[in-house]
C-alpha cells in the first residue's frame, strides 16, 4: 500500500549509497599501487622528521606514503616479518642484521644518527657527570643498590631500540642484565614508551636512558637534565630496510627502494641535518653523509642508493 513515489525514493537512496560505497572503496584500493607503508620506531616518528621527509617525497613523486606502525621497534619488525609494510626504519643493528639474514629484508642503509643521553636529576646523586656511559651505569647501580630512595633508574623494559642499547651498556659496565633487572627497587621497569618513561623519571627524580630527539621534545616539561650526551657508547644509528618481495610477495618494493634512494640523496640528507634547528636551537639528527665511520656502517650500506633490485613476479 506504499505509494510508488515512496518506493522510488527508497530505491534512489539505496542506489546513491551503493555508488558512494563503491567509489570510496575504489579510491581506497586504487591507492595501493602508488602506496608505500613504512614501519618505524616511536623515537624517530615522534620527532616529526619522517613526516617532513615524506611530505617532500610525495611532492616530487606523486605517491602515497603512510606510516601505520610507529610504536616499538619490536612491533615494527614484526610488521616487516609479516609483510604488512613495505619498508622498515629502525635503530637496532643486531635485529636489523638478523632481519636481513632471515631474508625478510633486502639490504640495510644507514642514513642518519644521533646520540642517546643519560638523563637524571639536576643534583646528580650518583655523580655520573663527566663519566663515560658504562662507568656512569656502574655508578648508578652501585649507588642505587645502597640507597634506592636517592638513586633510581627507570628502564623502558620493552625491548625497544633504546632498551637494547641500555642492555648493551649494562653489559659493557660488566653486569649480567638479568641480574641488574632483578637486583632491587632502585631499578624500575616501566614497560612504557619513551615519553612516558621520561615523565616517570621526572616524577621520581630518577636516571634513564633516552634518545636525544624525544628528550628535546619533552625538555620543556621536565626538570631532568642530560648528564652524559655523547660518545661512541651512546651512538644511535637509524637505518632503512626494504622488505624482501621474494619472501613477502605483494610488498611495494619499487616504491620502497625509491624512498630509500631519496633518504640517501643529498637533498634529503640536508633536511635531516638541519631538522629541529629552529625549534630546539640545535638539530635533532646528524646526516649520515660523510659520517660512515662514526656510524660504524660499512661503505656498502652507508648513504648509497639501493643495489638489490626487486625481483619482479
Amino acid at each position: 500500500m506504499l505509494s510508488r513515489g515512496y518506493h522510488m525514493r527508497i530505491t534512489l537512496k539505496i542506489s546513491m549509497f551503493l555508488v558512494a560505497l563503491i567509489t570510496v572503496s575504489a579510491a581506497l584500493s586504487a591507492a595501493d599501487e602508488g602506496r608505500l607503508k613504512i614501519a618505524t620506531t616511536s623515537s624517530l616518528y615522534d620527532t616529526g622528521l619522517l613526516e617532513s621527509i615524506v611530505d617532500q617525497f610525495t611532492e616530487e613523486n606523486s605517491a602515497t606514503v603512510q606510516i601505520p606502525s610507529h610504536g616499538g621497534t619490536g612491533i615494527a619488525i614484526a610488521a616487516g616479518q609479516k609483510g604488512d609494510v613495505d619498508l622498515l626504519i629502525v635503530h637496532d643493528k643486531a635485529r636489523e642484521t638478523k632481519f636481513i639474514e632471515e631474508e625478510d629484508g633486502l639490504e640495510r642503509r644507514c642514513f642518519a644518527y644521533n646520540y642517546f643521553y643519560i638523563v637524571g636529576p639536576e643534583d646528580d646523586p650518583a655523580g655520573v657527570s663527566g663519566l663515560n656511559a658504562s662507568l656512569a651505569f656502574k655508578s648508578i647501580m652501585e649507588k642505587g643498590l645502597s640507597n634506592p630512595d636517592q638513586v633510581k633508574f627507570i628502564t623502558r623494559g620493552d625491548l625497544s631500540g633504546t632498551h637494547s642499547k641500555e642492555q648493551s651498556l649494562w653489559k659493557a659496565a660488566g653486569y649480567n642484565y638479568s641480574a641488574v633487572n632483578t637486583s632491587g627497587p632502585w631499578y624500575v621497569d616501566a614497560g612504557s614508551p619513551m615519553g612516558a618513561t621520561l615523565i616517570m623519571a621526572n616524577e621520581k627524580s630518577a636516571y634513564t636512558l633516552t634518545d636525544m630527539s624525544t628528550f628535546m621534545a619533552y625538555k620543556g616539561n621536565l626538570t631532568l637534565v642530560p648528564l652524559i650526551e655523547g660518545g661512541d657508547e651512546l651512538l644511535n644509528v637509524y637505518s632503512a630496510i626494504a622488505i624482501n618481495p621474494d619472501k613477502h610477495p605483494g610488498v611495494n618494493c619499487q616504491l620502497a627502494n625509491q624512498f630509500i634512494d631519496y633518504l640517501v640523496s643529498p637533498q634529503c640528507q640536508e633536511i635531516i641535518g638541519t631538522y629541529g634547528q629552529e625549534e630546539y636551537g640545535k638539530p635533532l639528527f646528524f646526516k649520515g653523509e660523510g659520517n660512515c665511520d662514526i656510524m660504524g656502517c660499512s661503505v656498502e650500506e652507508c648513504v648509497v642508493p639501493t643495489q638489490a633490485g626487486c625481483a619482479q613476479a
Binding site: 610504536g71 616499538g72 619490536g74 612491533i75 614484526a78 623494559g157 620493552d158 625491548l159 614508551p193
Partner: peptide, 9 residues
C-alpha cells in the same frame, strides 16, 4: 600494550 609494542603478538 607492552607485549604488542614488543612484537610478541
Amino acid at each position: 600494550a607492552l607485549q604488542t609494542s614488543m612484537g610478541n603478538l
